[in-house]
Design a protein around this nucleic acid. Structure first.
Length: 267
DNA sequence: ATCAGCACCTGTTGGC
DNA sequence: TGCCAACAGGTGCTGA
């Protein structure tokens, strides 16, 4: 499932390919893929793509007029760019450009959403501080976690606090920081908060470097898989030995999500 | 305010 | 072998 590193990889790929292209048409084959709060997608016809960037787990296409298109891939969404008309399975929305190229939004499980809006992305998409933002300091984190009784892993997944971290990278960052997923957010020591912050940055940057982790359906804008799945330390490794100490990796469920950790390395 | 639990979806997996 | 229920999970909503 696409999280910050996968979304960043896609956004960079689209930025390189879409800049300057002018939208000639929009085709919608699954209307519910368009968010209820969205401006009609037809409004994009005639718009020229400026920058493409990532905001949390959203891919944001900025157009010449200032109007923006945000895409959330959720579980199985894909954005595939092609210079020719291609028949991609599960295509829900298709943007065509004047030069004949196109961008397809395909999504088998229909969880992904598109939204056209004007104004500030962070606010419109209700996103907290980006997990890779320089604004995220140990001090900010301490304030955030104060009095939070929720398990730290559940807190990490709430996009209104930190944006970009999903199930895979929450598990991985907690493993590298040596912190148990179930530990109450407010009970982390200063040292644990520092380690968590450092681990988040390291893991996310490393995953971006490897073009993301292809755990389920994730592929980049050319349909290619990422490489970070081979470097995962705990995610999806229940019953396998911890790469550091050999203890069997445990799987529990927190907030309805599979959670993996090493009972020996994480306290 | 805060948090747990469910609905949304459908391809894949495991059990019989 | 074939069928079907259970499962996977990010987010928004509901209700406690």
């Amino acid at each position: 499932m696409p999280e910050l590193p996968e979304v960043e990889t896609i956004a960079r790929g689209l930025d390189a390919r879409l800049r300057g292209r002018r939208v000639s048409g929009v085709e919608i084959s699954w209307p519910r893929a368009v968010d209820a709060a969205s401006i009609a997608l037809d409004a994009l016809a005639g718009e020229t793509v400026g920058r493409v960037r990532r905001a949390g787990k959203f891919i944001v296409l900025e157009f010449g007029s200032g109007r923006k298109l945000a895409v959330h891939l959720r579980m199985t969404g894909r954005l595939i760019f092609s210079t020719r008309i291609a028949d991609l399975p599960y295509t829900r929305v298709r943007l065509s450009f004047e030069d004949g190229s196109q961008l397809a939004f395909a999504d088998a499980r229909k969880f992904g959403r598109l939204r056209v809006f004007d104004g500030n992305a962070q606010r419109a998409l209700r996103l907290g501080v980006d997990a890779l933002s320089v604004e995220l300091t140990e001090c900010t984190l301490r304030t955030f976690l104060r009095r939070r009784k929720t398990p730290i892993k559940v807190w990490l997944l709430d996009q209104r606090h930190l944006s970009g971290v999903g199930n895979i990278y929450a598990c991985e960052a907690l493993y590298h920081a040596g912190v148990r997923p179930k530990k109450r957010a407010a009970s982390l020591t200063a040292a644990q908060r520092r380690r968590l912050l450092a681990s988040l940055r390291t893991v996310l940057r490393k995953a971006i470097h490897h073009r993301g982790a292809s755990v389920d359906d994730y592929v980049d804008v050319e349909g290619k898989q990422g490489g970070f799945q081979k470097l995962l330390a705990v995610y999806g490794r229940a019953g396998l030995p911890c790469r550091r100490c050999g203890t069997s990796i445990k799987r529990i469920v927190l907030a309805q999500r599979g959670t993996f950790y090493c009972p020996a390395c994480q306290q």
